[in-house]
Simulated scan of single mutants.
Amino acid sequence: MDCETRAFPPCPIRGVQAVYARQSSCPADFALVTVDFEPGEEGITFLVAADLDIHGWDHRSGISQSDIATFQTALDMGVREELAEQGVGTTVAVAVVLRSMRVHELDSHAKAFQAVGHVAVRNALTLAYGPSPRPQRRRA
């Protein structure tokens, strides 16, 4: 195996929390998830845990079961987009398991869940490999 190639994830990374919240206007953006990144077959498999915990959603909220499914699809898309950006040198072989999600009746929407997918991957990469090196400042 090429020493420059790394596999993601190198081991199970469980309980990764990610939040995307912006209060710049009305409506705002809000999505919070907890996901596991499990080593799997090459590629990306997205799974929803059978005991998925959804905070902020019940029969009185304005969020439908269809909305929840849309949020999950958007999360999957965000995870895939961020992992695709890892490029050459990273072999992705992961099962992403959605364990919990928090929604807000007004501020949760598909774009927020797509964005939180990116955040979740970045958080998992930091847990797996440490923080990304900071760009060096040029001295004048």
Rank of each mutant, 00 (worst) to 15 (best):
V19G: 11
V19Y: 05
Y20M: 06
Y20I: 00
Y20Q: 09
A21W: 09
A21R: 12
A21E: 15
R22A: 15
R22P: 12
R22S: 15
Q23W: 07
Q23D: 13
S24V: 08
S24F: 06
S25P: 00
S25K: 01
S25Y: 00
C26Y: 06
P27R: 04
P27M: 03
P27K: 03
A28G: 13
A28P: 05
F30Y: 15
F30M: 09
A31F: 06
L32G: 14
L32R: 14
L32A: 15
V33E: 07
V33Q: 08
V33A: 08
V33S: 09
T34Y: 05
T34V: 10
V35R: 02
D36N: 05
D36K: 00
F37H: 04
E38M: 12
E38I: 10
E38D: 12
G40K: 02
G40H: 05
G40P: 05
E41N: 07
E42W: 00
E42R: 03
G43E: 06
I44C: 11
I44S: 09
I44N: 08
I44D: 07
T45A: 15
T45N: 11
T45Y: 07
F46N: 08
L47C: 14
V48D: 09
V48N: 07
A49G: 11
A49S: 15
A50W: 00
A50F: 02
D51P: 05
D51E: 13
D51N: 13
L52Y: 06
L52W: 02
D53S: 10
D53N: 08
D53W: 01
D53Q: 12
D53H: 08
D53P: 00
I54C: 11
I54Q: 09
I54S: 09
H55V: 10
H55Y: 10
G56Q: 06
G56K: 04
W57F: 10
W57M: 04
D58I: 00
R60D: 14
R60K: 10
R60P: 03
R60C: 10
S61M: 02
I63T: 03
I63W: 03
S64T: 12
S64P: 04
Q65G: 13
S66F: 06
S66Q: 11
D67C: 02
